[in-house]
Design a protein around this nucleic acid. Structure first.
Length: 261
DNA sequence: ATGACCGGTCCTACCGGA
């Protein structure tokens, strides 16, 4: 059994105590982090090495974005892809010992205005998803795709479908692009396997809400997909919402899966 | 009103987050 966590950490250096708490409570084998916000030379590798996460696939940049996969089990064939040729640190891929490949993504947020003609960031987000679709259509064998995809596709993935229809992360054009990525391989939505689509399910709550838990105006921006043949190997999935309430939290909660690999 | 907070840096103001 392998336990994998996907977590937009919103600065890895600012969250070492949170990582420590999650490790102590859940003992994941693999951390897949997004928004690490640190260049590789300054990545806090010591904490990970000291706790047995000695296998690293890190792609960072100064100040923004950044992804990192840190593991107690070996990682092979580490791959970086420069989506949209922007030089952004938004993806790192690696192989797990059984041959499954693990793809850690941080999809562009897309800015405020959901119009690609007026907003370069939204245009970038859509183009990023088009590149993902072409990439995924060529995948063979078994894969795990996870991370902060910055899109909440279902009506139950947001606190108010009606009020968020024109808000970036839940607009129809983004969701259509995401659906095409999903259809480009034999993907299976792990989170919605364990929590049915009829139920509200969120992984992100804005910092701006004073009483975020009570207001519960969240969105499901984080995702874990696996190739169809891996479906019977899944044992569990949780969104660890309580971590959003820890001291100095990320605005995203960790998503944790258990899978027999 | 989602709604006024985060972390990082070009650092004491502004950007990006979403």
């Amino acid at each position: 059994m392998v336990k994998i966590v996907s977590w937009n950490i919103n600065s890895v250096r600012a969250r070492l105590t949170l990582l420590d708490q999650l490790m102590k409570e859940d003992q994941p084998d693999v951390f897949c982090l997004q928004e690490t916000k640190v260049e590789d030379a300054s990545f806090p590798t010591a904490w990970f090495n000291d706790n047995g996460y000695i296998n690293h696939a890190i792609k960072g940049q100064k100040g923004h974005h950044g992804v990192a996969t840190l593991s107690r089990i070996p990682l092979n064939d580490i791959e970086m892809i420069d989506w949209c040729d922007k030089g952004d640190a938004r993806y790192v891929g690696c192989g797990l010992p059984d041959g499954t490949r693990l793809h850690n993504f941080y999809v562009p947020a897309g800015g405020d205005e959901p119009n690609p003609d007026d907003n370069e960031k939204f245009d970038h987000k859509l183009k990023f998803l088009v590149e993902m679709e072409a990439w995924a259509s060529k995948l063979k064998d078994n894969h795990i795709l996870l991370g902060d995809l910055n899109i909440a596709p279902l009506e139950t993935d947001v606190w108010s479908h009606k009020q968020l229809l024109k808000v970036v992360s839940h607009t129809p054009i983004e969701i259509e692009h995401m659906d095409r990525v999903f259809k480009s391989h034999d993907w299976f939505d792990v989170m919605r396997h364990f929590i049915p689509p009829e139920e509200k399910l969120f992984s992100w709550w804005s910092y701006r809400s004073k009483d975020w838990a009570n207001a519960n105006k969240g969105r499901r921006l984080d995702h874990i997909w696996v190739s169809g043949p891996l479906k019977p190997k899944l044992n569990n999935m949780i969104v660890k919402k309580e971590a959003r309430g820890w001291l100095k939290p990320s605005d995203h909660a960790p998503v944790i899966i258990e899978i027999d690999l």
